[in-house]
Computed example of a mutant assay.
Amino acid sequence: MSEPRELIEEKWLELEAECPSDERALRVAELPAKTTNGPLAIGVDQDGNRHLLLPVTSHQAVRRGLDGPVLVLRKRPLEDSEHYQHYADLGCLRSDLNDVFTTLCADVLTEVNDHQDNPLKALYRVIDRWKALFRSSGAPLGGDQVAGLYGELLILTRLLEIDASAHRLWKGPFGTQHDFAGTHTAVEVKTSSGTTQRRVRIHGLDQLLAPENGKLALAWLRLDRTSEEGDDLPDLVQLALRRCDDESALLTSLASVGYYPSDNPHYRDVRFVVGAENWYAVDDAFPRVTRDQLTIPDDRISDVAYTIDLSGETPSPLDGTAVAGYLEDLIREHA
């Protein structure tokens, strides 16, 4: 059987290709997920909105509170020539969010397979997890934060093009030493926007310390803001989600850095193109401050931050072959 997401998407496309027999009819297809009340199903209504249908008993109530503008949850009876069945109907009212809704439905399908005796409880569990994931506790990301996340996602999408599981190499959202890390290879990403200077801000004594018996590269990107060309942050997020094999895990990482899809309208007016990109091997010739260079105990020093100017002839940037080697080593170590 196909993976849940692929299966659901395939059936939805088949339903959308059908002509409705009645303007009030809901075109329905069963899913291979059995419950004590019958199989799950999906549907497409006369407006083209997608629905997930979980069979419930006639006396079961459905939770209130999801009433738009994106998701609607209600109880509805469906009848054909042979059956009459009540369903918990979860509908998506925005076609531009169909991809995200499909992922949510795939999570429900997986959860129901583990809790066939209580599909409604399984639905609530998934909805509650997604609510927690998308709930924003603060303001949207600021300008420098948007540029920084954009730069990391650019590198991530390149890794995902090689390996759909490469999002596991993205460590930056969780406060680790480097933005991307395998066993012996790491990459630190720095972005500049609104300036032509190649100056990067380093935070701490470990940020430019290579993994033990390993190697570290610093990727510097100059992002130029544009009004029409380039991509905005939500565009890049969608590209990463399409390429990765675990959208929920990637969404969790994004939430950890303060990015929530509910804030997308805030980011739509900011587009970037890469004006320049240089990668550097962080070795003994690279200008940096690390704890092993200190002449006094490092527990006496804290909150270290400094700026490196990379505009001179040295250090010299890596060529394309060497950059590709870092990406390939990351993938190989992850595998």
Rank of each mutant, 00 (worst) to 15 (best):
P119F: 08
I331K: 06
N213C: 09
H167T: 05
D246Y: 10
E152S: 08
F134P: 00
A249C: 10
I296L: 14
H86I: 01
D89I: 01
I127T: 02
T321D: 15
I308D: 05
K171D: 02
G48D: 12
D47K: 11
R135C: 09
K121W: 01
S311Y: 06
R125F: 00
A210D: 00
D163E: 12
N278I: 05
T321S: 15
D114W: 07
L7K: 02
N49K: 13
D117P: 01
T290A: 15
S248Q: 14
S316G: 09
L218G: 05
L141M: 11
A41E: 01
T196V: 08
V237N: 04
D80G: 03
D96L: 03
L71W: 14
L318F: 05
L233H: 02
G142A: 08
C19T: 14
L216W: 00
R225I: 01
C92N: 11
E111I: 04
E16K: 13
L13V: 07
W130I: 04
P69G: 12
A25C: 14
A29V: 07
I127N: 04
L330C: 08
Q116L: 13
D231G: 00
D224Q: 03
A255V: 01
P32L: 09
D303Q: 15
I162D: 09
S136W: 07
S165E: 10
G312R: 04
V273C: 06
Q238M: 03
E23H: 12
T252W: 01
L254G: 02
D235G: 03
S193R: 11
P4M: 07
L239W: 00
L104E: 10
G194Y: 06
L169N: 01
N37M: 11
D67A: 10
V323S: 06
R24W: 14
T185V: 07
R168K: 11
A186M: 07
S311I: 03
P173L: 09
T191R: 06
W170H: 09
F134Y: 09
T110I: 09
L153F: 01
P77Y: 04
A186T: 03
R94Q: 13
N49A: 12
R242W: 03
G320P: 02
H184L: 15
E23G: 11
V72M: 02
K34N: 01
L78Y: 10
E14L: 12
D246S: 14
E333Y: 03
S81F: 11
D99W: 05
R201W: 12
R94T: 07
T176P: 01
L149W: 05
W279R: 07
S2D: 14
R158C: 05
L310S: 03
G275H: 06
T321V: 13
A249E: 13
L7W: 03
G320V: 14
G204H: 11
V100K: 00
R24K: 14
L31K: 07
K11F: 10
Q46I: 14
G325H: 14
R129I: 06
R27H: 01
N264Y: 05
L205A: 07
T176Q: 15
V126N: 00
N118Y: 08
P20S: 07
E3D: 15
S311D: 11
K121T: 11
E16S: 12
K215T: 09
Q293L: 15
Y267R: 00
L218H: 02
Y150N: 01
T307S: 14
T183I: 15
E188N: 07
D246V: 09
D292S: 15
S302V: 09
D107H: 04
G68M: 09
